[in-house]
């Protein structure tokens, strides 16, 4: 009985039912082939980097709806900056994302705007700026180094980047005082402020991390596609929020883990992958993700009512 109640068991079998899904997927032709697993890894890696940022923001009691638009901005910026070298391009994407994150952070902490509304406004402004800059057309790159960055066989470089980001975030959250502080701010902002934590700075830092990671994810996606598209990432905030919620984060802060969010993301990634193999049209996938998020938020709300703070 004890084994059934262990967190790892729950994390893999119940919330989310990742292992059962994988077992079912075995009956789907070609799921376990190297090619498909590589596709799966590619698909989860860019979203995954975003999920890490979103999870950190959610632990601090915030939310970031701008991640998808920032991702598009990162991709476009990376391609536009390529002529100055790959390093400038990568740094540019991350820094632009960080700037947008700083703005979100300032809106939330200095102007005290509700994080959902602040980042929704940021989302629209960033999307508008990117669409205006590119004249709504994707920017294409044929740079060899850049395209190579989007490859990697059998393990895509983007997936390696994801693993590195997860490892760093895990260390940051679980072994550094900074991580404890972020959890403290999310759990009870007033108490955190009274114990001398610089709440506004900490929260802004979380948004900066989320913005930078979204920018980098945009760069990696652009490298894979060979184009920086101004319209990508529309559903990214949903996927990221769903993964973080599955991973134990809550919309009121103070909870969540990067490892859990990763499992959540794998679950969603496998689900979408299986639907792709079976030829399910994209609108059913959109429905599934929307429905999943809706169900998760309802569960989140009911759990909060059962054990109120």
């Amino acid at each position: 009985m004890n084994a059934l109640a262990s967190p790892i068991f729950i994390r893999l079998f119940v919330k989310p039912p990742l292992v059962p899904l994988l077992i079912v997927a075995t009956f789907v032709n070609g799921f376990w082939s190297v090619g498909n697993l590589r596709t799966l890894a590619e698909a989860v890696s860019t979203d995954g980097i975003v999920v890490v940022g979103m999870t950190i923001v959610m632990i601090a009691g915030g939310f970031d709806l701008s991640v998808g638009a920032v991702m598009a901005m990162g991709g476009v910026a990376a391609v536009v900056l390529l002529p100055y070298g790959i390093v400038v391009s990568a740094v540019g994407a991350a820094v632009l994302g960080g700037v947008s994150g700083t703005l979100s952070g300032l809106l939330v902490t200095r102007l005290r705007i509700n994080p959902f509304i602040a980042t929704l406004a940021m989302m629209v402004m960033v999307r508008g700026a990117v669409l205006a800059y590119t004249d709504t057309r994707p920017v294409v790159s044929l740079d060899d180094t850049f395209l190579a960055l989007g490859g990697g066989y059998p393990v895509p470089y983007a997936f390696m980047a994801l693993i590195a980001v997860i490892a760093l975030a895990y260390l940051l959250l679980n072994t550094r005082p900074w991580g404890r502080h972020v959890y403290a701010v999310g759990a009870d902002e007033r108490a955190a402020a009274m114990s001398g934590l610089r709440v506004q700075l900490l929260k802004t830092q979380c948004y900066v991390i989320s913005g930078s990671l979204s920018g980098i994810a945009g760069l990696l996606l652009a490298a894979r596609l060979g184009t920086g598209s101004p319209i990508i990432g529309e559903s990214t905030p949903l996927t990221a929020a769903a993964a973080a919620l599955i991973g134990g984060a809550s919309l009121r802060g103070g909870e969540g883990s990067v490892a859990g969010a990763f499992v959540g993301l794998l679950f969603i990634g496998c689900l979408v992958n299986v639907m792709n193999i079976l030829g399910v049209p994209s609108y059913y996938q959109r429905m599934t993700i929307g429905g999943l998020l809706f169900a998760l938020v309802v569960t989140d709300g009911m759990l909060m009512r059962l054990r109120p703070r």
Partner: peptide, 9 residues
């Protein structure tokens, strides 16, 4: 449920 995220879903 959080109304913003639920209605986006």
């Amino acid at each position: 449920a959080n109304s913003i995220v639920a209605t986006i879903g």
